[in-house]
């Protein structure tokens, strides 16, 4: 048996202390990804610090921000009245992910920290720089249909699998983390990393830091005009080939503000800044949406099996924006 310790601290501070002291310790909450990784032998923590019962599971609005505790279940957030009313994009993205059973276990913090589903990452007989730095990237010249078209490196072309995170990136969320030196805030778009030469690191979290909440600014215009589109190989329980989270603040037939992010295309939820910049101040027309989609794709690169994403993503951006704007 692979023996490991299991502790269940009573406070966030005690949890942080338990991790900080132990090099191979890991937090566990819902376990919907970590347990799989342990079964596959991808990770073998010597200590699990169970945070699932810490009081980090409230959803509340304070001022212009909605704060979601890191231990809220994905299903709780998706069904919460405040979220459905003020952040429908987030609710849609959550419901597009996984299955009801998994959403009933998975937490918001855990969703952010889930690992890639790259098949080479999970198979110990295959090369993978993310799992075993220096062993090579199996996907680069292998079966890479699910893989990145933005921001990849020769070390890793894996994608982040989350749907929720695509909406959080679009909504300009902020991640609140607690560490041994106190609390700090990380802008959501800076939370996950690109692979570069160190694909083993998924995020900018420091050792010992615990996600305690995410904060999302509310914009009533976005709440009225937003949509999460997930394109996948079957109707449910499949990771995105590509997904698009979009929100428009429309006034007098002009796009005052716009948020666009894509999933299934990069090592992190991919904010489409160039397309946003193009659309700001323009009218919501099909031709503008097409031009924006083109702008979004300027840095895209295919690796063979995933070349179709170079067509699918702009199509999905255009479809999503047209649907929101009703054109």
């Amino acid at each position: 048996m692979i023996a490991f310790d299991y502790v269940r601290p009573n406070s966030a501070k005690a949890a942080v202390d338990a991790i900080t002291k132990d090099a191979s310790a890991q937090f566990i909450a819902g376990g919907s990804n970590l347990v799989d990784l342990m079964k596959h032998g991808v990770v073998a923590p010597q200590k699990l610090v169970d945070i699932s019962r810490l009081p980090l599971n409230s959803i509340e609005q304070s001022g212009n921000n909605i704060r979601i505790g890191a231990l809220c279940l994905n299903s709780e957030v998706a069904e919460h009245a405040l979220i459905k009313e003020k952040l429908p994009l987030l609710a849609q993205a959550l419901n597009a992910g996984a299955s009801p059973q998994i959403r009933n276990m998975a937490t918001v913090g855990g969703n952010m920290l889930q690992r890639t589903r790259c098949t080479y990452f999970y198979d110990l007989a295959m090369p993978c720089n993310k799992r075993q730095p220096g062993s090579g990237c199996g996907a680069l010249k292998g079966y890479n249909r699910m893989h990145a078209i933005f921001g990849a490196s020769n070390s890793c072309i894996a994608v982040h699998p989350s749907d929720m995170c695509v909406a959080l990136a679009a909504l300009d969320a902020t991640v609140i983390v607690a560490g041994s030196k106190g609390e700090r805030k990380i802008s959501f778009v800076d939370f996950h990393r690109l692979p570069g030469d160190t694909p083993e690191k998924d995020t900018h979290l420091q050792k010992g830091e615990l996600i305690t909440a995410v904060e999302i600014p509310v914009n009533d215009g976005f709440a009225k005009h937003s949509l999460y589109t997930k394109v996948r190989d079957r109707a449910s329980y499949a990771f995105a080939l590509v997904s698009v989270a979009a929100a428009l603040d429309l006034q007098n037939n002009t796009i005052q503000h716009v948020r666009l992010a894509a999933g299934g295309v990069a090592h992190k939820p991919w904010r489409l800044m160039a397309a946003e910049k193009y659309l700001k101040g323009k009218s919501p027309t099909e031709s503008n949406f097409k031009a924006a989609a083109e702008a979004a794709m300027s840095a895209a690169k295919g690796y063979g099996y995933n070349d179709f994403k170079l067509t699918l993503l702009p199509n999905t951006i255009i479809h999503t924006l047209k649907t929101i704007a009703g054109v």
Binding site: T229, R232, T316, H319
Partner: peptide, 8 residues
């Protein structure tokens, strides 16, 4: 679907 080509 005319744009994403999803088949139902």
């Amino acid at each position: 679907h005319p744009e994403t080509k999803m088949v139902k």
